[in-house]
């Protein structure tokens, strides 16, 4: 790490070592920001303020600029996602086939807003643009498993099954 860069609230661990190595590999170049944000999200799962502050200090970029870039792209997550993640495809085909009903059903039954996480941190609900499986519309992804031609009831059942079985998160 170059001199004069203060440590933030980040824990020194393997993830941080890997992140700093990646930044070094990019020679602390400011225009590598997007690349670095990708790597940081892969390592940490989401980008919190300590992490973004650290990146802004290492790349010597204004924090507001880093935050602006991180929030511009939907792909970057700024909040810790829940233990389980449900993503509903809202691409045109899925939308036409009733994706909105699936989203509303989940919102209602699990008391969660799209883009948000339940208060107990168990479930996050995201919507996304076309995942490229239009033939199976409407598509819902529950913890990485795609459910095609889904009805709201089927999806709810699946989520209940998944959320009910607590698994210890390796985070």
């Amino acid at each position: 790490m170059p001199d004069g860069v203060q440590q933030t609230g980040l824990k020194t661990d393997r993830r941080l070592t890997l992140l700093e190595a990646a930044i070094k590999k990019h020679q602390y170049r400011k225009d590598a920001l997007l690349e670095i944000l990708h790597i940081a999200q892969e390592l940490y799962g989401y980008l919190d303020k300590d992490l973004l502050t650290h990146i802004s200090k290492l790349l010597r970029l204004p924090p507001s600029h880093v935050y602006g870039v991180a929030t511009f792209y939907n792909l970057f997550k700024l909040k810790k996602p829940g233990a389980h993640v449900v993503t509903v495809c809202m691409g045109t085909a899925c939308y036409v086939k009733g994706a909105e009903e699936i989203v509303s059903a989940i919102e209602r039954d699990f008391n969660v807003k799209r883009g948000g996480t339940t208060p107990d941190g168990k479930l996050s609900l995201f919507v996304t643009r076309c995942i490229g499986a239009c033939a199976m519309a409407p598509n819902t992804i529950v913890d990485g498993e795609t459910i095609g031609k889904a009805t709201p009831d089927e999806v709810l059942k699946k989520i209940r099954a998944v959320v009910g079985v607590e698994k210890v998160e390796a985070r």
Binding site: P62, S64, H65, Y67, G68, T71, F72
Partner: peptide, 10 residues
């Protein structure tokens, strides 16, 4: 010369 301000989201 500070760049304390920027735009978030879009």
């Amino acid at each position: 010369g500070v760049h304390a301000i920027d735009l978030m989201l879009r």
